[in-house]
Design a protein around this nucleic acid. Structure first.
Lengths: 128, 128
DNA sequence: CGCCATGTGTAGGATATTCTGCACATGGCC
DNA sequence: GGCCATGTGCAGAATATCCTACACATGGCG
């Protein structure tokens, strides 16, 4: 699970806005790019298996096949392996220190996690 | 703060083992590479400003200029921006849920963070 | 001094990544 | 049917990344 900067930007847009055609993605790009540039990224993503596409009318519509949180976990794991000896708990300890979180705040975060108020469309634990 | 895979591996080795010459780094690489390949990475890292070098005897010794934790924070920030809307707290909530941590475990982590038992050589908060 | 192990410098090739230009195709509308 | 806005397909250029081969330089040691 490895993305180049251009690929990652496409994935971000696909994750955020769902199925789209190249011209729509192009408009949402932070940089100003020609249409074929965007299609080049998308083709590679399809080739790598992270994105699927289907023909609707004249155009191809692209959709993220890899789930956002799955990609996130993969990239986190890589980072944690590099910097925290592979231990997510060490990462947590680092973040707690770095954010200077109090026990009360942690408790609140834990509650927030429990209630799952995020806008992630991730299925509940265990469900698939 | 962006590293290619080859560059990142050099940085990891420099962070872990300190100042070294290319042949030493070469030996510690996971892949088997020729000496000039390693030097190529190092030259780029020097050019990018992440690594310094000095001549000792006949050889150049390379040293990470960018602190490990600084790089870590930078890469975390990028990841958090992509996946958690820039909120580290949302990241924390995600991790708590993902790791399925209890309040007691969180408290323990907070204590661990307080005691600073990590082998990170990061200066204390505020010190610079 | 003269050998030689160890490093450096330089050249360059293979592939990946990023991005543009342009010709052609097609679906929708009149 | 015929126009045309919108998309696709293809060619390919520029740069970055990754990696090798080989010649030359030099410090240390006998």
């Amino acid at each position: 699970m490895r993305f180049t900067p251009g690929e990652l930007e496409c994935m971000k847009i696909l994750w955020e806005f769902g199925e789209q055609k190249p011209s729509e993605i192009q408009e949402r790009m932070s940089r100003s790019l020609k249409n074929p540039a965007v299609r080049s990224y998308l083709s590679i993503l399809v080739e790598k298996g992270y994105v699927s596409r289907r023909k609707v009318g004249k155009a191809y519509y692209y959709k993220a096949k890899t789930h956002r949180d799955r990609a996130f976990r993969g990239m986190m794991r890589e980072l944690v392996a590099t910097f925290c000896g592979g231990s997510t708990r060490r990462l947590m300890a680092f973040l707690i220190k770095n954010e200077n979180l109090s026990a009360a705040e942690l408790e609140e975060l834990a509650r927030a996690a429990e209630e799952d108020p995020e806008d992630d469309k991730r299925p509940k634990r265990g469900v698939r």
